[in-house]
């Protein structure tokens, strides 16, 4: 089973991507659907979905408490749209697993974490053990973010 970083641990990943051309109704548990497939589901409860760059998360907003996992896919590490998607999902109250997947670097883990991501499926990372500590490159930040909703100016002593 593939591994990923989740909530600060290296764990097995029980989830799988579904063939995006498959019939949404023929899919089952622990399968991550494309946005198109997910939108076709009559019953969305318990079903996971993956957003691609260009697919803003707003269609998910009214179902957030039913979704166990949202994956945000990074086809290249320089495409930063997913950072905003993650943050918007959390700001709209999403509590489930928010997963970054695809081609991003361990150098980006701390920023992704601050934008609300709590799981990281890294296609290009040879050592999750070495990547893991990079979640904490910085102990202090200026801005308000998901992991620290108060900006520094509201916290300075």
């Amino acid at each position: 089973m593939p591994k990923l970083i989740k909530r600060g641990q290296i764990v097995d990943d029980p989830w799988q991507r579904v063939d995006p051309d498959a019939n949404a109704n023929a899919t089952g548990e622990h399968q991550i659907l494309s946005l198109e497939q997910w939108l076709q589901l009559p019953e969305k409860s318990g079903r996971a979905v993956q957003l691609e760059p260009g697919q803003a998360p707003s269609p998910l907003f009214e179902h957030l408490d039913q979704i166990p996992l949202v994956a945000v896919y990074f086809p290249v590490f320089t495409d930063g749209r997913g950072f905003s998607y993650g943050r918007e999902l959390r700001e709209h109250g999403y509590k489930g697993e928010l997963r970054a997947s695809g081609h991003f670097l361990r150098e980006q883990l701390s920023y992704l974490h601050r934008c609300g991501f709590d799981a990281f499926l890294m296609e290009d990372e040879p050592s999750l053990e070495e990547a893991l500590p990079r979640l904490a490159d910085f102990s202090e930040y200026y801005q308000a973010s998901i992991d620290q909703p108060l900006p520094l100016f509201r916290r300075r002593g």
Partner: peptide
């Protein structure tokens, strides 16, 4: 400056 420094959301515009 402080807000934009290491802003996690806007480093890959």
């Amino acid at each position: 400056r402080q807000w934009s420094t290491l802003h996690p959301e806007f480093a890959f515009l």
